[in-house]
Every structure is written in C-alpha cells, then in structure tokens.
Amino acid sequence: MTELLAEKTAAPMDPHLSVDESDNIDDMYLTFAVAGEDYGVTIGVVTEIVGMQRIMLVPDVPHFIKGVINLRGKVIPLMDVRLRFGIPEKEYDERTVVIVLDLGEAPIGLIVDAVSEVLEIPAENIDQASSFRSSDRQSVVRGLGRIGERVAILLDERVLVSDVDVAIPETLKA
C-alpha cells in the first residue's frame, strides 16, 4: 500500500475566503506551484483543499491518475499534475496538497507541489493563450494572468481533467 501519511490538514475552503463582497468570483483564481511555475484555476470549480492522504491504487486509469482517496465518504480520483504535464514526479512532502475540483460530472483532486494564494485577475490582465496553441493539441492553458510583476499560468480545467494529451508549451517551460 502506498503509505503517504502526511498531516491530514483537512481544511474545507470557503471560496469567499478573504474575498471582498464586491469582488467578482469569476475573476478569482486559486494559484499553486508545480515544478517552480505558478498555475491558477478559477476559484468557482474548487470545492476544497486537503492535505495529502493515503492513496488507494485502482486499475484501468491513465498513468497520471495516482489512485483514489476517501474524502469523508466521497471517492475522489487524484491526478498528479506533474505527471499530467510530463514533468518528473517528486516525492510528496508536507507542502504537497490536493485541490479538489468539481466540474459538474465528478470530483477530481489535483496533487500539486504547494498552494499559493487566491488572486483576483481581471479579464483585461489575461493574455489569451491562442499563440501557444499548436494545431494538433488542445491547449491546457487558458491564458497568462499578469499580477504586477508576476505571471500565473491559468489552466483550462476541463482540458486538464480530460484524457486528451496535453503538454505545456516549451516557451513556458523555459
């Protein structure tokens, strides 16, 4: 059994956490780190953030699905975002967290190196990803969000959780 007994930091996240009433939830992104890059998913699809827990292995799933966890009676498959992007795996540590998304059909958990913060990124600060899109692949990048000096790679969650082959554009890896 893959014993991954990190601290169970089950802290259900309130999507309105530190969000002002006047803020538009559509512009809010949860940012997290994977292999030194900042990524973001729209806060509307995030249901909670939990600590790493013991993963149960299941058959017949893509290689980037590490297994399932039992989260208070819900069976949630976990995707290792590194493996999803073709980045070498890294041993889980105390900063490793699971971001649980609900995109309507079924919940899924993203294993990421660490969560950063919730940021408001208005649409005008997001550069569309069309320039990174190659013809044979659907891009998992929705756009690049500029927050002052920083840039967060905003992901298309539906492409992310689908089976389609994705790759992070070389230009971003550099």
């Binding site: 299941v58 058959p59 017949d60 799933v61 893509p62 699905i65 399932v68 819900k74 069976v75 498959p77 995707m79 059909e105 079924a106 919940p107 899924i108 959780v161």
Partner: peptide, 12 residues
C-alpha cells in the same frame, strides 16, 4: 458502494 465517475469510468 459509489459509482465509477469521471477518471474512474474506464475501470473494467
């Protein structure tokens, strides 16, 4: 028992 949804729907 929980149904096989999403990423788990391929389990034969």
């Amino acid at each position: 028992m929980k149904p096989l949804l999403g990423a788990l729907s391929g389990i034969r």
